[in-house]
């Protein structure tokens, strides 16, 4: 092989960006996670303390609760987004007047910054001024107060995430559905499959790669949600919506406990990888099975 200087030169900007914004910070976080470092604390110096940060987080109930809430949040949000996104994608496959218009406007939430989404939802849900508590009260007599009701606050974070991110799922699945060849579906009709069987045996397996990619993207995003929830509930009431991203933010910024925050970040990254790997094994590797009879 001849040395390909031009090739490396072409790659250099990408490698530089990846290094500066990805690899170096990651290594730095890893380094910090093995230190006690609180620059505004009693001893502002960075002191090596081995695995103490990691030992501490195993017994940190606040952290463990936040992990549980995050998992619950990711599960409900991603599952609903996939189901709703698929239904919308199927709807947009059909011919109806104004389809192009609806296809376009349904993506609008995607272009809104998370911090704005959080603020808008906060305005809409603040008791006495928000439209949602007002309507719920006048229609169903339900008193929505996310400052007091933990379940409602949690549900609302999920609904907000669904509102914000379902269009992404719809777009991906719509692209996948549009790219499908029509013959296997006609073949399935001739083979004797009804609509339900066509969905399970043909559509779903054929768009599975797209669904999986979307699940991975959405899952990773959901596990690190911070800004929207911070705007909407600030993690409250109590710790009901204090997802792990928010937990890390609180430790790192208001508390300036950098070492411990870094350790949690590393563990969350690890957990995310494990979850994705489990999903991969469960859903992708199973493909390599033998025939069913």
């Amino acid at each position: 092989m001849r040395p390909n200087t031009v090739g490396w030169l072409m790659l250099a900007p990408t490698i530089a960006i990846l290094g500066i914004f990805g690899i170096i910070p990651f290594i730095y976080v890893l380094y910090v996670s093995f230190h006690q470092w609180n620059p505004f604390g009693a001893s502002p110096d960075m002191i090596y303390n081995g695995a103490n940060n990691f030992r501490r987080l195993v017994f940190d109930t606040e952290f463990l609760t936040s992990i549980a809430f995050t998992m619950k949040f990711a599960f409900f949000a991603v599952l609903s987004e996939i189901a709703l996104g698929y239904l919308l994608a199927q709807l947009f496959m059909k011919e109806f007047p104004g389809r192009g218009f609806f296809r376009t406007i349904h993506t609008l939430p995607l272009i809104v910054a998370p911090i704005v989404v959080g603020s808008v939802w906060r305005l809409m849900t603040t008791p006495s001024i928000g439209i949602i508590p007002y309507l719920l009260k006048s229609w169903f007599g339900y008193d929505l107060n996310i400052g007091r009701d933990a379940t409602a606050a949690f549900a609302l974070t999920v609904i907000m995430d669904i509102w914000h991110w379902t269009p992404l799922v719809t777009l991906t699945l719509l692209a996948a559905l549009l790219a499908l060849p029509k013959e296997p579906f006609e073949q399935a009709q001739i083979d004797g499959a009804n609509r339900r069987q066509i969905f399970w045996h043909v559509t779903l397996p054929m768009i599975r790669p797209a669904i999986l990619a979307t699940v991975f993207i959405r899952l990773m995003d959901a596990l690190r949600t911070v800004d929207e929830v911070w705007m909407l509930t600030s993690g409250g009431p109590g710790a009901a919506t204090r997802f792990v991203g928010l937990h890390i933010w609180k430790i790192v910024f208001p508390k300036t406990d950098y070492g411990y925050g870094a350790a949690i970040s590393v563990i969350v990254l690890y957990l995310t990888l494990v979850m994705c790997w489990l999903l991969y094994v469960a859903l992708v590797a199973r493909r390599e099975r033998k025939r069913t009879f």
Binding site: P184, Q187, Q189, I190, P205, R291
Partner: peptide
């Protein structure tokens, strides 16, 4: 409906189910 006409069809681009083995493709009907 096509499924009740008792016919079998072979398409130009074969229309095999890409996610099924040969045996599963053949056994699907």
């Amino acid at each position: 409906l096509p499924k009740d006409r008792d016919i079998a069809m072979v398409f130009q681009n074969y229309a095999l189910y890409p996610h099924k083995t040969v045996a599963d493709n053949m056994g699907f009907p």
